[in-house]
Amino acid sequence: MTTSPHVRTPAAELPSARPPLVTRPLLLRFVTVVGASASLFLLLSVVPLYATASGGDAGLATGALMLATVCGELATPRLVARFGYRWALAAGLVLLGAPALFVTAWGGMGWIVAVCCLRGLGFALTVVAGGALTASLIPAERRGEGLALAGVVSGVPSLIALPLGVWLADRYGFLPVSVAGGLLALAAVSVVPGIPGREPCPAKESAAGAEGRIGGGLRDGGLVRPAAVFTVTALGAGILVTFLPLAVPAAASGVVAAALFVQPAAATAARWFAGRLGDRRGPGRLVLPGLLLSAAGLLLTAATGSTAAVLCGVAVFGVGFGVAQNATLSLMYARVSAAGYGTVSALWNVGYDAGMGAGAVGFGALAALTGYPAAFALTAAAMLLPLRLARRP
């Protein structure tokens, strides 16, 4: 018996429409992303400049910020489990913004370090609690695309705020910039109550067990493998930001400025592409290409005397780094329940910050022995060590 062409297919058999990605709660969350990112990057180079102008150590200011950030990221999952995403996010924005208002109140290095430590803890809360909150607001079948969009939203303010802060400080002084940086984070607190979020539930947290704790995450190979690969790619990011201005001949300062724009721009675009592709074919398939492109880009950059090689190298690295960012984070979220989102966010962000810091410190020691071109080439080769992990993340 044949079926009439006019018979309708039951609604249950029709392919379901993709759930909406950009919702009001996600837009409110993006307001907090922009506030935190703009506040951090507006002062990221300005505070070290202020420390130097006050007779202090610029490196100590940045080091205190990054150390406090990593420590805060390790502690945040427990705070989230106890108090909830929204409380942690709001507290992070306050800690990021309020101390910035008073960074120029005293000029001593002790005061500057204290402000940087408080802001580092605040930023840790915003990225870990906020990252987990973002993941909870994105449909699972569109997670890669949603995380890519979140990356774009946080990346654009950083591209603008970093050079803008230095320009404003040079033109108007340190105080207006510090006040602006503080107010950007504090203003974002107002939207947090409108964001739906998972509130703490002791019974559920107890049942979640190790999945909701950072120690349990470190014992989970399904989380550690992609996190380790991403940490290695982050080494290259820390190296480029710190040493490219020193490695490229002084006469080519314009090349450095262009390169430091091309790399994050390429990473942002690649992160978006990887998110869409990962939703269709699985993020695990993109981890290896991300690692290989990152290493290849750093190898090309070894030709520091060639403008074309430097620009091409940072572009290739940016693409690989953006792919690795999205693929590893999407894969890690896919391997846990909602109770583990905070742990995933913490592990991934610790890998990011620790990788950048270790890359800068280690590369400096290596370059002192070999010179910059050889150090770039050797680091690119060393980035291939987790090749086995990247093949089966």
Rank of each mutant, 00 (worst) to 15 (best):
residue 75 A to R: 12
residue 92 G to A: 12
residue 113 V to C: 07
residue 107 G to P: 04
residue 77 P to V: 09
residue 85 Y to H: 15
residue 76 T to C: 10
residue 101 L to T: 08
residue 93 L to D: 07
residue 117 C to E: 05
residue 104 T to A: 15
residue 99 P to R: 01
residue 81 A to T: 03
residue 88 A to Y: 03
residue 86 R to T: 12
residue 73 E to L: 15
residue 90 A to H: 08
residue 73 E to Y: 01
residue 94 V to I: 14
residue 90 A to D: 07
residue 75 A to T: 15
residue 90 A to C: 02
residue 94 V to K: 03
residue 119 R to S: 11
residue 95 L to H: 04
residue 92 G to H: 08
residue 113 V to D: 07
residue 96 L to S: 02
residue 120 G to P: 12
residue 105 A to K: 05
residue 108 G to Y: 07
residue 77 P to Y: 09
residue 73 E to M: 15
residue 95 L to N: 04
residue 112 I to P: 00
residue 112 I to Y: 07
residue 81 A to H: 03
residue 101 L to N: 02
residue 111 W to V: 05
residue 108 G to H: 13
residue 100 A to R: 00
residue 74 L to R: 10
residue 106 W to F: 08
residue 88 A to V: 15
residue 114 A to F: 12
residue 104 T to V: 15
residue 112 I to D: 06
residue 103 V to P: 01
residue 89 L to Y: 04
residue 96 L to T: 04
residue 105 A to H: 11
residue 78 R to S: 14
residue 82 R to Q: 13
residue 85 Y to F: 14
residue 84 G to R: 02
residue 103 V to E: 02
residue 80 V to F: 12
residue 117 C to A: 14
residue 99 P to G: 07
residue 96 L to H: 01
residue 116 C to K: 09
residue 91 A to E: 03
residue 84 G to A: 07
residue 85 Y to M: 07
residue 102 F to M: 06
residue 79 L to G: 10
residue 107 G to S: 14
residue 91 A to P: 02
residue 110 G to V: 09
residue 117 C to N: 00
residue 76 T to G: 04
residue 102 F to L: 14
residue 102 F to Y: 09
residue 109 M to N: 05
residue 74 L to D: 10
residue 76 T to H: 08
residue 78 R to Y: 08
residue 74 L to K: 11
residue 81 A to I: 00
residue 90 A to F: 09
residue 109 M to F: 01
residue 77 P to I: 09
residue 106 W to V: 03
residue 89 L to E: 00
residue 87 W to A: 14
residue 98 A to G: 04
residue 80 V to T: 12
residue 73 E to D: 13
residue 105 A to F: 11
residue 79 L to R: 05
residue 120 G to A: 14
residue 82 R to F: 04
residue 108 G to F: 04
residue 99 P to Q: 06
residue 85 Y to Q: 13
residue 113 V to K: 07
residue 73 E to W: 01
residue 95 L to I: 08
residue 85 Y to A: 08
residue 119 R to I: 10
residue 82 R to A: 13
residue 104 T to F: 07
residue 107 G to E: 10
residue 107 G to I: 05
residue 105 A to T: 09
residue 85 Y to T: 08
residue 93 L to N: 02
residue 83 F to D: 01
residue 73 E to P: 08
residue 75 A to G: 15
residue 103 V to G: 00
residue 107 G to V: 04
residue 116 C to N: 13
residue 93 L to H: 05
residue 80 V to R: 06
residue 101 L to R: 06
residue 88 A to N: 13
residue 110 G to D: 12
residue 99 P to T: 10
residue 115 V to N: 00
residue 84 G to M: 02
residue 116 C to H: 08
residue 114 A to H: 03
residue 109 M to P: 03
residue 87 W to I: 13
